[in-house]
Every structure is written in C-alpha cells, then in structure tokens.
Design a protein around this nucleic acid. Structure first.
Lengths: 336, 336
DNA sequence: CTGAAAGCGCTTACAG
DNA sequence: CTGAAAGCGCTTACAG
C-alpha cells in the first residue's frame, strides 16, 4: 500500500507514446488521436491503476474544482442538512468540498476563510452567523466568489435562504386561525436578521387579525432546547393567560413542550405550540410538533449552483419557499 | 475583486530579491537570511496581500496537508458531531478537510473515495457503514492511510470508536437494577457490527442478573424515530407485559416515547425507556431521556490524531469510554 | 495524428 | 547570506 501513484509519464512509457498524448486521451478531450493508440493508452492506464493528480491539474489549469464551506456550528442539525445539499450538488458538478467549522472565538471564522483562500478554492459558500456583523470577514470573502445564507455587510455577495418573514407569518396565522388571541413567541438572539424577520412575520399576522402585539409575550433565547425551556418558564410566569406559543426554531419548541409538561399544562389542550424548521425528529415529539418546513438541503444545493453557474455575473438574492406542516401540538386542522 | 493573487515572484520583484529567497523567509524556516531582507520581504508580502498557494506547495512537497472524510449520511446527528471533532483536530494540525457524503447507491462511496484519492489527500477518515460489507471499497481505502469507525473487511485499517458492548450492558444493567425483568430492546439493522455488540451487552447484562434473554423482546428497526415508533408498537402488541425498553439509539428511543404516549402507557410509570448516544435534544424530550453518553466529537478528533500522528506504524484499535446519564425516562436514581 | 516546449507557483538541494 | 537550477504532475498552445 501507499506506493508512489502512477503518473502520466509512467503510463506513457508503458504505452510507448509521449506523456502529452496520454494526457489528451485520458481527459477524454475530443482530440485527434487514433483509436489504436487511444485503446493502448487506456489499457496501460488501467493496468497501472492510474489515478489523475488533481493538484497538479489544479496548478496547470489555475482552477481547483473545489469549493469551500465556512460553517458556523456544523453540529447544528439545520446546518448539516445544508451541507449535505451543498456537497451533493458540488459533487454532481465535479467539485470537491473543503469544509471548515468556525467556533465562536473572534478570529476563528477568518482563519477558516484564509485556509480556504490558500487552498485556492473556486468559490466559497458561507453559512456562519458571525458574518452578519464582521466587516473584516466580509472583506476577506470578497476576494473570491461567494454565496452566503446570511446577509454580508458591504454587499457584493449573493444571498440564498428561505423566506423568514413568511415563516413567522404562517406559524402565527395558523395559531390565530385556531382562535388564539394570546400568542407568545420565543425568538433567537435579537441581533440576528433571521430573528427580526420571523418576528416581523409574527407581528404582521397578529395585526392582520386585529390583535395588538404585546411585548410581554416575547422572549429571546439561544436556539437551544434548554433556552426554549427557560424562556417558556419565564413567559408563563409573566403571562399565565398565554394559550399559544410560536418558537422560532424546533429545538426551542421542544424545550417549550418540556417546560409545559413540567408545569402540568397540556399541549395542545392548554397551550398550543408551533415551531419552525421541521427537523426529522419532531414527527415524534410528544406531542408531534406542528411546524414550518424550511428546505435546508435545497438551500445548500441552490447555494452551490448559484456559485458554480457559469453565466453568473452580479450578486443575486434567492428566497426558497417554506410551508406549514400541521401535526398535533396545536390541536385540530387548519382553520377555515 | 478576484484579481490574480500575488505570487512569490511578485513579492520578490517588489523586494528586489530572488523568489527563492522570498520562499524561505515566508515559510519561516530557520534559514540564513539577514534580518534586513527578511523585514523587507515581509513588508512587501503584506503590502501585496500575498496568500501562499497551497496547491503549488502541495505539488512541490508531494503532500497536500489535507485529509478526506468519507461519511455515510452527514445529516445524521452523531456523524456531524464526529465531523466537528475531526475538523477541529485537523485544523489544529494545519490540515484542511475534504468532505464527502455517500448516499445509499451502490458505488457512491467508492466514487467519494476515488475523488479523495485524485485530490491526493494525506489520509482518509471513514465513517460509512457500507464499508463493513464492501470489500472493493475496503481495497480502495488501503491505497492511503485510513482510520475508520467501522470494521473494514481485510484489515490493514485503524479503528476508533466507543465500547458498544459496554453501552448495551450499562443501559440494560440500569434497567435491571431498577427491578425490571421484562426488558425489551429495539436494535438497528442486524447486519451492523454496532448492533450485534450492543445486543451482546444487553444479553450479558440480563444473564448476569439471572434473566433468560427472550427473543420475543427484540425488535430491529432502522435508527429513525419512525422506525422506533413502529417497533415499539409491534413489541407491545406481542409482549404487553414489557416494563422496560432499551433502544439502541436516542432517535428510536424518541419514537418509543411517542408510541408509548399514543398507547396511553406512562413513561416511566408503566414502561421505562433508555436510549443511547445522548443527543443534546434528549435533555428535553418528554420525559427527559435516560441514555448512554457516546463521545462522538472526541471520536472524530481521535480518528484524526491517529491518522496524522507521526510515529504511527501498524493499524491500531482505539475504544473510547461511554457512560450512563440518568434522567427521567426510567424513573428513580441508580439502583443500589 | 503525435511530440516537444513552456508554464502553473511552489520547494529543495546545491552553488557561489 | 543569496541566487540559479531542477523538479513536482499536469495542460495548453504550437509545431511537425
């Protein structure tokens, strides 16, 4: 094992032709090569177990056929779905993907991007929230074609994502349609765009139903089940008359289910709960969670095709659709 | 943006030295270069925004400082934890990571490995269950240093993982210690090694307590919540006297909680449920799940350090410890 | 139809 | 202390 891999020259020597000729037939370019030599070359390549050297090719062509992903916390379920979609699409297009996962520390994301730039990736897909407020990082990213799922300060970068306002609106409309008037919400960290967009959707659905949004019914948390759990406890202590709850992601919604269970409040009997994301796992929470489906894998695929699409010129902004998935945590079907 | 990046020659020209000299100072090798020129070189490099070209370096040094990961389904939570740990360790050691996610189709994993070999990665970390039964794949992998979390037919590959027998034993002992005699188990697909190991642990714990394992109390599923849900339904229809249940992963345990809820069986009052993996989310299932903690991220980190550790010669086998985490789904604390 | 040259951006001995 | 040569494994015009 681990013997020196065969090179073009090895194949050439075995065939008795120049290595440039071997190069031509092996990359299948429609060049002028006689069928006879083509066949002989192919044979020796197979016999030698020739595996093309992509790094040499990359140097010669000035293109690595690789993209980089700079992710926030890869362990996040939504993000890993995104990566799956991105990897699938990249491979379909013959590109490799270099992955980096940036922890919270200040310059970690920048270090990731720099590593990717050294590797001369053809483009970068960014899925790191820190991007929204880090201008230096944003500047780094402009050195290479980039598509982000977060707004990048300073522009010049394509955006792809789902419609966050619609997400907030659909969930809230569903709750309101079921007759709820005291609808609380648990948001993510307030400085995030997705948070204000979903909150905007929440408020507009309330207002459309003639309900004045009540600031006392809004609690911020940190996207985690534990955060959702604590936020729910605070919320119900402050406003015991709440009958419905929209959590800005499924994990916090699960924390809410857990908190309500502990408080002895039945779901959906006493309090209806809606989440969003549609993690696979929420089909079997107790009770099964009504939520908004967000197409993470499709988003990843779309990000890559946007990045690699040949005709692409100026930065674009793509919004993918979301939809309500009714299960048990809000009670009955959709209102009329 | 996207201007041609500066090269060593650019920096050399601006400094007024040969590009080889620039190379020496820039890679910080402790070479003989006067402090004066060193400083000047560093200055021009900074002014030009020089970013070393890792692909050229890779060609010259015959080493890419990159490793590849071939993963099964990256969307799997445990696997993404593993990847996080691996990426962290790789970057700490100055290595990039190329990621590939193999779908189920027959030759997909092989295509992933081939892509990695073309890229000339320094080594591969394998986390793809298909490896256990695919000898061709295994053969491919032997072309480059590899560490796997699955047994690879034919040997020659290092293994790292957790102690699956212990996992099965700890969970079952806990249940038995609580006084249960009719302890069922939901396993993963029977052809997987981890499945037989955890089942072995389950049986040995039973036998140690003088309980004859009952084949009627074993159901196989597919690791998913839905699979666990259906398996639980089958199990309880067949053996209504079951009072405890050990699921071979947390997702299936969640499906079990959901099924028991639907059947109107209280957890842990009527049936105790234990899982394993310790997904972050199970802190807030209803009720909170008692489970076995499996150190996925540490496993990933260990796999990479095993791969990259200089002194490494012959294949090794590393088993990481697991431990019981008691929450609410089995009732009371640990038995005496 | 096939071959020889030049070049991609580096590193690594080897001279001066 | 610094420079010039050779080479890593390819691709891409350009000749024959």
């Amino acid at each position: 094992m681990t013997a020196r891999p065969a090179t073009l020259k090895d194949v050439a020597a075995r065939t008795g032709v120049s290595f440039q000729t071997v190069s031509k037939v092996l990359k299948g370019s429609p060049v002028n090569v006689s069928e006879a030599t083509r066949a002989r070359v192919l044979d020796s390549a197979r016999e030698l177990g020739y595996v093309p050297n992509a790094v040499a090719r990359g140097l010669a062509t000035q293109s690595t056929s690789a993209i980089g992903i700079v992710a926030g916390d890869l362990a996040d379920w939504a993000l890993s779905q995104f990566v799956v979609g991105a990897e699938r699409e990249a491979r379909r297009r013959g590109h490799a993907v270099l992955i980096t996962s940036a922890r919270g520390e200040p310059d970690d994301a920048a270090a990731c991007v720099r590593a990717l730039l050294e590797r001369r990736v053809d483009g970068i897909v960014a899925a790191a929230p820190q991007l929204e407020h880090d201008c230096e990082l944003a500047q780094l990213l402009r050195a290479v074609p980039t598509v982000s799922i977060h707004h990048v300060p300073g522009g010049g970068v394509s955006l792809v994502g789902s419609d966050h306002r619609l997400t907030g609106r659909l969930a809230t409309e569903h709750l309101v349609g079921l007759g709820h008037r005291r609808v609380a919400t648990i948001t993510g960290p307030p400085d995030r765009r997705v948070v204000s967009s979903r909150a905007h959707g929440y408020r507009s659905a309330l207002e459309a139903a003639g309900i004045e949004p009540d600031p006392a019914l809004v609690e911020a948390a940190d996207w985690t089940p534990e955060g959702g759990y604590q936020a729910t406890l605070r919320l119900l202590a402050r406003a015991p008359d709440v009958t419905a709850l929209f959590a800005q992601n499924d994990l916090m919604a699960m924390g809410a289910l857990s908190a309500l269970h502990r408080l002895g409040r039945a779901v959906p009997g006493d309090v209806a709960v809606a989440g969003c994301d549609d993690l696979p796992v929420v089909v079997h929470t107790v009770p099964a969670l009504t939520t908004i489906h967000v197409p993470f894998a499709e988003t990843g695929a779309r990000a890559v095709s946007l990045l690699l699409e040949p005709g692409r010129r100026r930065p674009e902004c793509v919004l993918l659709p979301v939809e309500l998935v009714v299960r048990d945590s809000c009670g009955g079907g959709v209102a009329p």
